[in-house]
Amino acid sequence: MTDTATGPMASQIRSRLETALAPDRLEVINDSHHHAGHMGDDGSGESHFTVIIESGHFSGKSRVERQRMVNRALADLLARRIHALSIRASAPEESERK
């Protein structure tokens, strides 16, 4: 089961990715409950996330380039607030939904 995140950190992630990458699809999933009490758990309940993002900005880009684009959009959050981020990035032409 996935938990589509709605907390303050998830909202910031969503807003920044929408602004930077104009995604056709964006899911921000809070995985923090899987890591409660572990290293990196800051007690906020918003420290570990998965992002599933589809954007035309990813067309022709490698997996590493796509991850770097997401990381750039979230750089200061990754440095201070997000302990772990899993990224699944695709271009529209790669969509499984077609």
Rank of each mutant, 00 (worst) to 15 (best):
P8H: 10
S86A: 14
E96Y: 08
F58V: 03
R72A: 14
S15M: 07
R63Y: 05
S90C: 03
G40N: 12
T19H: 06
E46P: 08
A20R: 14
I87Y: 05
R68F: 08
D31E: 15
T2Q: 13
R16G: 04
S95H: 03
I52G: 00
S95E: 02
L21G: 04
L17E: 08
S90Q: 06
D41K: 02
M1T: 05
R16F: 09
S32F: 06
I29D: 12
H48E: 04
G43C: 07
R14C: 03
L26I: 03
S86R: 15
A84Q: 10
E54L: 00
G60I: 03
T50H: 13
F49Y: 14
E93Q: 11
S90N: 02
P92G: 00
R68K: 15
M9F: 07
A36Y: 04
Q67H: 15
H38Q: 14
M1L: 11
P92F: 00
F58D: 00
H34S: 05
R97K: 13
Q12E: 12
A10L: 14
P8I: 06
I29Y: 13
I87H: 06
V70P: 00
E18D: 11
E54P: 00
H57S: 14
L74R: 07
N30A: 08
M69D: 12
I87C: 03
H48A: 07
G43Y: 03
S32C: 07
G60Y: 01
H34N: 07
H33S: 08
R14I: 01
D76L: 09
I53Y: 03
I13E: 06
S44A: 12
G60M: 02
H33T: 09
R14K: 08
S15W: 02
I29L: 15
G43L: 02
L78S: 01
G40H: 12
A10Y: 12
H38L: 12
G43W: 02
I82Y: 04
H83M: 11
P23E: 05
H57G: 09
H48Q: 09
Q12I: 04
E54D: 02
I13R: 08
V70E: 02
L85P: 04
M1R: 10
I87W: 04
L21Y: 08
H38P: 00
H35S: 10
T4E: 14
H35C: 11
A73G: 05
M39W: 09
I53P: 00
A79D: 13
A36C: 05
I53R: 01
E46W: 10
A89C: 03
S95G: 15
A10C: 14
R88S: 10
I87L: 06
R14G: 01
K61G: 11
S95Q: 07
G43S: 11
H57Y: 10
T50S: 15
R25P: 03
P92D: 00
R72T: 10
S55G: 04
L78F: 00
M9C: 09
T50R: 14
Q67N: 15
D76K: 09
S55V: 00
L17D: 09
I53M: 02
A20K: 13
A22T: 13
H38N: 07
S44P: 05
